[in-house]
Write a protein that binds this DNA or RNA. Structure first.
Lengths: 192, 192
DNA sequence: TACGATACGGAACTATGATTCCGTTTGTCA
DNA sequence: TGACAAACGGAATCATAGTTCCGTATCGTA
C-alpha cells in the first residue's frame, strides 16, 4: 500500500532518478539532524542543486512529510504482519512496539514527528496514523481477551507512550536508555 | 537555596526593578511559546527595550537557563519537603513526581529543557539536576526498603520518565492526556 | 543641585536558512 | 537529428530573529 503523493504527470527519466536520489539523501540528512537540517545539505548529499529539490517538493515541510509518511507506512506493514502471528497476544503487541521503535531509533526527524513537532507533518500523515490505530486496536483487543493487558489500556495510549520513548531517544545528553524506557512503558500496560 | 547567577556589583534601583520585570515577562513568554519565543516579545511583555534585556542577560540562552534553573530549584524544594513527610514511601515519591510535573505543565520552555532541547540550558542547570537526583535517591531508597517500588528502578529512571511525560505535554495535537501518561509511568515503577 | 557612572530604548546590523528565478542543459519524440 | 518541453543548478532574494551600538535618560552621591 502506497499513499504517497505522486506527481500528476509522468516524469522524465532523469527527473524520476533525481526524485529517488533526493528522497534517499533527505532521509540521511533529516535522520541525523532532524527538522533543523538544511535544504542545502539535502541537495548536496543528494547530489543535485537546491532548485531541483524544490522542483520535486514545494517546501521543506512537504519533503519531511513524505519521509515520515514512508516510515509510518513501515509501521503499518509491521503491525499488519503481526496480525497473522501465533502466540501470546500481549507479547506479539509488545514486539510490534519494539520493532517500530527500533525503526525510529536512527531517525531524528521521525522521532520529532511522533513527538508532534511540526503541525504540517502531523496532519499530513493522518491517514497512516489512523490506519496504524486500527491495527493497534485489533492487537490490543486480543490481549484484552487473553487477560494479559490491563483493562483500561487502549489504542490511544500507544502513540502517547511512543512519543515518550522518542523523547528519550532525542535527548541531547546521551544519558537516557530508550530501550529501558520502552520496557517500562510496556510493563505499564501489563495486567497487574 | 538560590544558585542563580547574580550580577557582580550592586545594581542601581531601576536596574534591579527591571531585572525582575524581565524575569517575570520572560517567564510568561517562554512558558507559552517555548524556546521559539522572541527576545522582542520578551522585551515588549516585560515593558522594557531589547537593549535592556541584553544588559541583564547576555544571550537568549542565558535568560532561558536562569528561568529553568528557578523552576528546577522549586523541584528541589518540593522534593526536600517530602523527605519529612510521614506515609507510604512509594506514594510520597509518586506525589513528588505529580507536584513537579504539575509545575511544568504550564511552561513549554521548561518542558523543552527537561526534554534536553538546548545543550546550554541542560548544562547550565547541572547543579540543580544533581541535587534533585540526590534527593530522589533518598526517597527511592525508602520505597525500596518498604518493598513497594520495583527492585531495578533507580533515580536515573526519573528524569527519563519525566522527559517522556513532558513530550506528551508539548505535543502539537492536544490529543495526549499527560496525567494519564504520568500515572502509567508511576505504575511502571511499582513492584509487581 | 551638579556630575559621572549606570542604565535605557530601539533602530540598525548580521547571520542564517528557506525559497525563487532564470539562463543552461537534457530527455523525448517526430 | 532537430525542436521543444521538461528539468537542472545555484546565485540572488527575502524573511526572520538574535545581537550590537550609541544617543539619551536616570540614579546616586558630593
Amino acid at each position: 500500500m502506497d499513499t504517497s503523493t505522486e506527481p500528476k504527470h509522468a516524469l522524465r527519466a532523469d527527473a524520476r532518478r533525481n526524485r529517488e536520489k533526493i528522497i534517499e539523501g533527505a532521509r540521511k540528512v533529516f535522520a541525523i539532524k532532524g527538522a533543523s537540517a538544511q535544504m542545502e545539505d539535502v541537495a548536496r548529499v543528494s547530489g543535485v542543486g537546491v532548485g531541483t529539490v524544490y522542483r520535486h517538493f514545494p517546501t521543506k515541510e512537504a519533503l519531511m512529510t513524505e519521509l515520515v509518511r514512508r516510515t509510518f507506512a513501515s509501521f503499518i506493514d509491521i503491525a499488519r504482519a503481526a496480525l497473522d502471528r501465533e502466540g501470546e497476544p500481549f507479547d506479539i503487541f509488545a514486539d510490534v512496539l519494539r520493532s517500530n521503535l527500533e525503526l525510529v531509533a536512527g531517525d531524528a526527524a521521525v522521532q520529532q514527528a511522533i513527538m508532534g513537532a511540526g503541525a504540517e507533518v502531523w496532519e499530513g500523515t493522518e491517514p497512516e496514523r489512523r490506519q496504524m490505530g486500527e491495527i493497534s486496536s485489533q492487537l490490543i483487543e486480543r490481549a484484552h481477551a487473553a487477560g494479559t493487558m490491563r483493562r483500561d489500556a487502549g489504542a490511544e495510549d500507544i502513540p502517547m507512550l511512543m512519543c515518550g520513548v522518542c523523547a528519550s531517544m532525542g535527548h541531547t545528553a546521551k544519558m537516557f536508555d530508550w530501550h529501558r524506557h520502552l520496557e517500562l512503558a510496556i510493563d505499564s500496560l501489563r495486567v497487574r
